[in-house]
Amino acid sequence: MKNSSRRGFMGKAFGAVAGVGAVGALYAMKKTWDPLPSVKAAGFTTLDMSAYKENELVVEKWRGKPIFVLKQSQEMLDTENKNISQITGKTTAGMDKKRLIKIGDAHYLVCIGLCTHLGCIPGYRPETKDFLCACHGGMYDDTAMVKKSPPPRGLDIPPFKIDGMKLVLGEEGPEYKKMKETGITL
């Protein structure tokens, strides 16, 4: 009896030590899988916005991700209220301008070029002025709002800061913060 209770104690003592060890080991394993600091150290990309042409998609790169820059032509701005969202069934006019970034007198669409469905890169079609994602057939209009599912929302807008005619990606300026607060982007 005495013996077995001593064994019981030893079992519990081992269990406690092993338990602490297991939790510690799991924590270390989890942290080892984390992105490295060098990866996380936010990459900043500066774009010179005066160089873009209307209705011509340019793909830049930020943190390894493609960034779409699409300068809007007057025609694109005018037809905005004609776009109907397939998800809400309503015109997208209200949302539209809010997704664009105004620099100087021009409006730009600047967004992460990865489909919000599962991350393929949609292609821009200048004739129809929309984006088509070949992976599962998702479509976006010229301000990258969803026209056809499966994508659940428009293309995300990266953190940006306006600096004269330049745009700094990776830094959160007041215009970006406002977009985030109002739910224009995630």
């Binding site: 992105p35 990866v39 390894g64 991700k65 599962l118 659940p152 995630l186």
Partner: peptide, 24 residues
């Protein structure tokens, strides 16, 4: 990206699995 769980937006989990923002 499937691991982001759709509207759950578990982007942190996806980045954890990848060890980066994108496969690298």
């Amino acid at each position: 990206n499937l691991f982001s769980g759709g509207s759950l937006h578990a982007d942190g989990l996806v980045e954890w699995i990848r060890g980066d923002y994108v496969p690298a």
